[in-house]
Design a protein around this nucleic acid. Structure first.
Lengths: 241, 241
DNA sequence: CGTTTAATTGAAAGCAGTCAAACTATGTGG
DNA sequence: CCACATAGTTTGACTGCTTTCAATTAAACG
């Protein structure tokens, strides 16, 4: 648990559902790593590229995004500190989507070769990477459902619940509130709605007392009730919690 | 390539993007396996369960599906012969979605323990499983975009293009047409539309000469034009093709 | 402070949903 | 081989959720 290394967050993230021996943890922490600060909206991975390194989110938030032919943007997932941002590109031929910083963010960048070597030589780490990517896939499935079969009110509430739950499960929440780092346009891109309708939906949720806002800090006075509204069940996140 | 084993399809499916040595292939083909025929709509995996075996689709079609609280159904992916249907449940605590047979189907059922042992002992097979699940995740991302940001006409055309492309890439297409095994209601569940609107959309595509139908066999006289309409680019499928 | 970005609001239009009914396959049993 | 039952497709009329367009207000930032 050497909190001094930027990768200790990654170790915690991987070890949460797949056990890692001290030796595995040490090997991960010994990886060569470069830290990099990026501004909001910076592209971390671009569709079509083949990155030669793997970024891990250390601080701040990021998201995955795809563009449709007519210019529409769809955010397909959100990422919290500790999340690996492009494991998949180490194993696939080229990136099939974009990754962007949502806020100002700090990245730990690991060169491709030593990380690959580590995964090949340490079965437990390979296992943890597989589990992490399977959980990510589960979240994608839930998003297909969210965007495909729920109305605007439910969709937005679901997104907020997922965010709050994931923050909580990592102990990243402040007491009494979660800072939601998204603009209403970004919430729209994540839910398949327009920013105008997101605004109306959020104001309605606020009027009902389901959420409270002060600036960009959003809080959930009654998360249980919001979970009902958002048709939210945390099973798909596969958190012990 | 012993085509006699029901698992030879799986071997081909895994080996397509991650090389497998003859020894790896032989080990896969030596797995204990039971074949099972199921009727359309049979549940292969149920949300909440923890399966003790892993089904591989040998013949016919299947899909993954989730239900929303108000009874809506969202199909989140389609599966073709050769696809493993619940690798993820070997590594996660419990199933987060349902898997159902789309048509009458034949399954090869592998007990959990020997398959796990094989994956642990053969790095190349573990690698292939990871690559397969990463590609599946890529397809989920594209579906989020499809359902979230495209209009009905584009969505349906995209689904048809994906189906045709995946069938083609495995040599499963008949000459001059693909048998589309889905009802219009199922197409609606896969695209986030109602069956009524799917019907109108499909009839419009037919009137434009983009698709042809005779009974349940659908064909694509001009797949290139359909790809334009469906905003379809096969990059996300990660097929050599 | 001034400038830019984000949030808010209203009015109008449209795409897709809902409801209901008719029609067409498909398959089954007599 | 036909009559019936069932499942799926098709069509029309109407509704409504969400988008679009446009303008205003508020907040963030250098």
């Amino acid at each position: 648990m050497s909190d001094s290394s930027p990768l200790s967050l990654l170790v915690g993230s991987l070890a949460r559902r797949a056990p890692l021996a001290p030796e595995d943890r040490a090997a991960l922490l010994a990886l060569p790593v470069t830290c990099r600060d990026v501004a909001p909206a910076t592209y971390i991975v671009r569709e079509g590229e083949r990155p030669q390194s793997c970024a891990v989110l250390i601080d701040g938030f990021a998201y995955r995004q795809k563009l449709s032919g007519d210019g529409g943007r769809q955010i397909v997932s959100l990422h919290l500190p500790g999340d690996p941002l492009d494991f998949q590109n180490m194993f696939l031929d080229c990136a099939d989507h974009n990754v962007q910083a949502l806020t100002r963010a700090t990245l730990a960048v690991i060169p491709r070769a030593p990380l690959m070597a580590l995964i090949r030589s340490h079965g437990a780490i390979a296992h943890a990477v597989l589990v992490a990517s399977l959980i990510e896939a589960s979240i994608f499935r839930e998003w297909v459902l969210n965007v495909g079969r729920r109305d605007a009110r439910t969709r937005v509430a679901h997104l907020l619940c997922e965010f709050a739950t994931r923050m909580d499960s990592r102990g990243l929440s402040d007491e009494g509130g979660h800072e939601l780092p998204m603009t209403q346009e970004q919430i729209g891109d994540a839910t398949g709605l327009t920013s105008v309708h997101v605004n109306r939906t959020i104001k309605a949720l606020e009027a009902e007392g389901l959420i409270e806002r002060q600036g960009r800090v959003i809080s959930f006075p009654d998360l249980n009730r919001l979970r009902d509204v958002g048709d939210f069940s945390p099973l798909y996140l596969h958190v012990a919690n």
